[in-house]
Design a protein around this nucleic acid. Structure first.
Lengths: 195, 195
DNA sequence: CTTAATACGAGACACCATGTCCAGTAAAGT
DNA sequence: ACTTTACTGGACATGGTGTCTCGTATTAAG
């Protein structure tokens, strides 16, 4: 859904924001499944055709919305203390999880039967957040906090996986204390696992 | 959706199985989202009302279907080697994941805005599989393979979380080798983290 | 064997979201 | 002014929803 021409009336940024904001409001209020294009259009005060012009489905709307939302919050400035950075990333992610959790789990469910959308979800959201952790772990490795032989790929999956599992299954409260618990446990395990 | 009376025609087990099997076939073919009650009824050769009589929604149908399916496969007989058992549980789960992954992720997404269904999903599926791992880890702890001080709750979440994250995000192939990789890594970490 | 109670398959029904199309209007460049 | 594209609003056929009703089937009780 690209637009290259410089001719004619340009795309309305207010309409774009209204759509994304309305989608976020509705998914919070009614849940992923209950969100409809029609509902978003009405909530945003926007013609339905305007949504169909720029997005193919509600999942594309919500993917763009969550990317916009996650960018500033869950991606803090790197400092010279990788452990601190890791903690901040996880804290930000957990803080975002009440909104992001329902959306991303809905997007993942949607992606299971749509390889194209899975690739898009992969490259635009999941892979970036993966890379964030991985790079921080690499810095920690260079700083000596994490053993040289640690398999960072697997550890990255463990960190995100543990977080996701808790967010999705919710057998325990999800808060910043949990973020610290995960950070500490992973680092303790890694520190003594320099193999 | 209970039925206690012993009067009148009893529930048809063939119809029940036909519904559950049809639901599994359809979710494989078309994905969770695309499955509809109407579709299940037609695929199963069953009246639509028969489904509504026993289940409230397609998610309850699929929950029952996946529970029936997972019971025999992903729950092997315990042996006297807890490490072997752990490996077998994960192998079974990964083997089941092409079918179970789309369904469970759909169920989780559905559950985010429905506390009652979340509780049901929790108690009937997630908690049981959690307990399976936890008990095996406890046996491993008694056998000395896992350090005494290890936080089994967190470790259980790490194991299921890592598995789920890989199944859902699919940035890497999901197979039995991956099950072994996860098992080995967790045990290596735990063995040296008796703290 | 009749009767009461319940389950079954099939279909009708009003409701709502989908995705497309069209009309009229708005905002940009030439 | 004219062209081009975006915007809101509404119409439209299609298909799923959840409820209801029909006639029939299967069980236990009398």
């Amino acid at each position: 859904m690209e637009q290259t021409s410089a001719l004619g009336r340009p795309r309305s940024e207010p309409a774009r924001r209204a759509v994304l904001d309305a989608a976020l409001r509705l998914v919070r209020r009614d849940g992923y499944q209950a969100v409809t294009i029609k509902g978003i259009a009405e909530e945003a005060g926007v013609g339905r055709q305007t949504i169909y012009r720029w997005w193919n489905s509600k999942r594309e709307v919500l993917l763009e919305a969550i990317i916009d939302l996650a960018r500033p919050i869950a991606q803090p400035e790197p400092t010279d203390d990788p452990v601190h950075d890791l903690r901040q990333i996880l804290r930000g992610s957990f803080r975002l999880s009440p909104v992001a959790g329902p959306i991303i789990s809905g997007l993942m469910a949607d992606a299971t039967n749509d390889p194209e959308f899975l690739a898009q979800l992969q490259s635009e959201l999941l892979a970036r957040r993966r890379a964030l952790i991985r790079e921080t772990l690499e810095r920690a490795q260079r700083a000596g906090t994490v053993g040289e032989g640690a398999e960072l790929n697997l550890v990255t999956d463990m960190i995100w996986g543990t977080m996701w599992y808790r967010v999705l299954s919710r057998h325990a409260p999800v808060n910043e204390a949990l973020a610290d618990e995960v950070t500490d446990a992973v680092l303790r395990l890694l520190g003594s696992a320099g193999k």
